[in-house]
């Protein structure tokens, strides 16, 4: 969890895709069996940008991270719901910080 928080803090100025790849790397180390893919949201369309495209046995849990980005997890039951909420909240901080008021 701390490693993910560190990524959020260290990579605030990164391009979105670089940030996403860095997060993916941390999550893959923390949960090697977790199959998740990152998406760009265009209205109803959640378009694939990075991550799992090899495993497909069950449906996806969709988590919206910001107006533009989300993640789809194909075996979300591997992580406790509370832990998943915490992970999503940390990643959301990055996107929230980018909102221009």
């Amino acid at each position: 969890m701390n490693r993910l928080r560190a990524v959020v803090e260290e990579r605030q100025r990164d391009e979105d895709l670089d940030f996403i790849k860095a997060c993916h790397e941390v999550l893959a180390e923390l949960y090697p069996s977790l199959h998740l893919r990152w998406v760009r949201i265009y209205g109803k369309r959640w378009a694939y940008i990075y991550g799992n495209s090899g495993y497909l046995d069950q449906g996806s849990l969709r988590i919206q991270l910001s107006q533009d980005y989300g993640i789809c997890i194909d075996n979300a039951e591997l992580v406790a719901p509370l832990e998943l909420d915490q992970l999503a909240a940390i990643i959301k901080e990055h996107f929230n910080a980018k909102v221009v008021v």
């Binding site: 893919r37 378009a47 694939y48 495209s53 497909l56 449906g59």
Partner: peptide, 10 residues
């Protein structure tokens, strides 16, 4: 297309 299974992934 609502679960990111688009393009190269699909």
């Amino acid at each position: 297309y609502r679960c990111g299974r688009t393009g190269s992934c699909f």
